[in-house]
Nucleic acid binder design. Structure first.
Lengths: 225, 225
DNA sequence: TGATGTGAAGCGGTTCACAGCC
DNA sequence: GGCTGTGAACCGCTTCACATCA
């Protein structure tokens, strides 16, 4: 078993495995091999075994993994043995959509507070949660035991909001504003950026057709991609 | 200049550079060096030069890059010289939030159609766009010249929706449902998964405090992370 | 036999370091 | 002098291949 640092890529895959195991458990399947799991995500089976090997030896040679056992292990590894209290900063479309989503779907993530700076939103209730003034974030974060903050404000305000969050002592941040954000070592910031994804799609749409791509003609030799 | 395949990581960064250049242009800055750009995203400056080198030589030695020129190059590279017509499947919270977002913010992405299977939603207007029955997707996709589809349906329906999209001949898909999806080589599928990101945060929250992580005691030697 | 766990090889992306040019 | 463009070194993740064990 490895004891070194676990890569983000590994933990992301663990989430995916866990979801799949939940489904398998529902269907009543009791064991699964790394190869079968790999096929579902077209991954390499060694990948999966290596990912799991970071945390222990969960399998049985010749058999595979017990669905139930592995599921419990993954839950524990990912810290999903308990719920997390979340505060969302930005009660606009995206912020409220996220709040709605986690109100409806039972997960380990519970939105307990919403913040905005717009006076017309402050005080309004969304999903039984009153929108608070972001000025009181630090106070409310402590009062409500917020452990994870979600930044859902316009791009230009995101940086300032992150600072507030860090000052409030929160160590985990999910940023859905279209800006790359970074914070001190001990604060984990993850970003999700729809526009980057869409631009990646537009790149592919506009580069696929021709294959040959118009560029500065540095070299005049014909070339292939 | 490199002519080999361009990695996804590179194109994602190009999006980030472009946004930054847009801001710089607004501020009136006329040139920027790779080192200055790198500092903003704490990247290595060689990274940036390499990313750009995939597409040409845009800089001037001793000076840096012209903000305006580089901006135009990046737009062209990313295929942002024109608009893209988008259809969203799933007119729930997330689907409509995305539609709203792109209705408000001027980008190269234009939501022109919304689809759902829920009769109570079909026919309703969201942002001047009538929600269509997803059964008619293929027809509507052609009629409306949809080039990019966004999957915003519940996880269990995502796979079937993707098949519909592929059958309609669409080559670019953004999936925001919490399932990993894959399609044929020529169809580009990008996924954005909030729950994976949140679980990555919970992993960090639950592993940071102790450093030493409780695992199967295979080896009994004390070890450090 | 069949599937795990894992060292070793392979591969791709990042960083270094410096030649080349303004 | 300063900054780009780029081969080479480096590093980390993935895949291979096989010893190991139920």
């Amino acid at each position: 078993m490895k004891v070194e640092k676990v890569s983000e890529l590994t933990t992301n895959r663990l989430s995916v495995y866990l979801r799949c195991l939940n489904e398998l458990a529902e269907k009543g399947q009791s064991t699964i091999s790394s190869a079968a799991l790999a096929r579902k995500f077209n991954l390499n089976s060694a990948q999966i075994r290596k990912d799991l090997a970071c945390f222990g030896e969960f399998g049985t040679r010749g058999v595979g993994y017990s669905v139930d056992e592995l599921r419990e292990h993954l839950k524990k590894i990912l810290g999903l043995g308990r719920d997390y209290r979340i505060g969302i900063i930005g009660a606009g479309r995206i912020g409220t959509a996220i709040a709605d989503y986690y109100a409806i779907n039972r997960t380990n993530f519970q939105v307990v507070a919403l913040f905005d700076s717009d006076p017309s939103k402050i005080g309004k209730k969304i999903n039984k949660i009153e929108v608070s003034d972001v000025k009181n974030f630090s106070y409310a974060a402590k009062r409500d035991n917020i452990e994870i903050a979600i930044i859902a404000v316009p791009a230009e305000k995101a940086r300032a909001v992150l600072e507030k969050i860090v000052k409030a002592g929160i160590k985990a941040v999910l940023n859905v504003a279209p800006v790359p954000l970074t914070a001190a070592e001990d604060v984990k910031v993850k970003s999700v950026d729809l526009t980057i994804s869409l631009e990646s799609l537009s790149f592919h749409l506009s580069s696929e057709p021709g294959v040959e791509r118009e560029m500065k003609p540095i070299s005049r030799t014909g070339r292939k991609l």
